[in-house]
Amino acid sequence: MPGVSDGLVQARGLRKDSGDVHAVRGIDVDVGRGEVFGFLGPNGAGKSSAMRMIACVSPRSGGTLQVLGMDPYVDGPKIRARIGVVPQLDNLDAELTVRQNLEVYGRYFGMSRAAVRAKATELLAFAQLTDREGDEVEPLSGGMKRRLSIVRSLVNDPELLLLDEPTTGLDPQARHLLWDRLYRLKRQGVTQLITTHYMDEAEQLCDRLVVMDGGLIVAEGSPAELIGRYSTREVVELRFPLDDAPPVAELEQLVERLEVLPDRLLLYAADGEAVLAAAHQIGIRPLSSLVRRSTLEDVFLRLTGRRLVD
């Protein structure tokens, strides 16, 4: 394969069809060593399909894919021996204890009993689960199960970690604890591939990300680059009484871009306060106003639209 650097994942024109559904319709991805790379997109965008192909549990329908320099279709077991996978839904072994979950899983990688025992002790501490090691999995909280899933994927010291929506359904404390653990792994040089539809998570964790929609990549870059490219520095949100038609035409003169939502107007501009002052001057009196920094969420909604996808 031409141009194989130390890229851990390299996809060219990667496709996945299942029946008539074209889940992934030709994407190019390069993930370098030590990088934290994000797949963003609404439900059904093809993120999880892409992840499954990279995890060697879904044969591709077309294009090329190299993971750790090998072809997942041919060398699935060899690749899986060197990666870690955190699935979207926890699939912990409910019939085993917390510690046994780690040890049995480690044995599947061919590790010795002594090695898995030592590794389990280390990982339980990392996940702050040491005092629950003899408990069954079922009574654990959602955050604890998620942490256990994550450390389970680390049992083989993976070079590449695949995390499919790692924090969905967790409370804020649990999310922040998880982010901290993932950041430490990054510091240790573990390459991470993350899918998420939480923009704050992507901004927190990812060095680089792609936005997927309808099975295609619609944008690529660092969080800051994407905000710079697809949004403005600031956003002004204005609310008007529901019965009155908002003064869209007047406001459009003042800003780069304006978006009309059912309950408010969004004004995209470099300087939000200035826009607000100008609006006041021409006699516009909204019910309420808010000036905030532009986020990845604005980029995401712009690229993938506001319609509901399910």
Partner: peptide, 14 residues
């Protein structure tokens, strides 16, 4: 329900 085999397939097992 347990999706246990999915977990096993994330390891070298086939």
């Amino acid at each position: 329900y347990e999706r246990l085999y999915d977990a096993m397939l994330a390891t070298p097992l086939g």
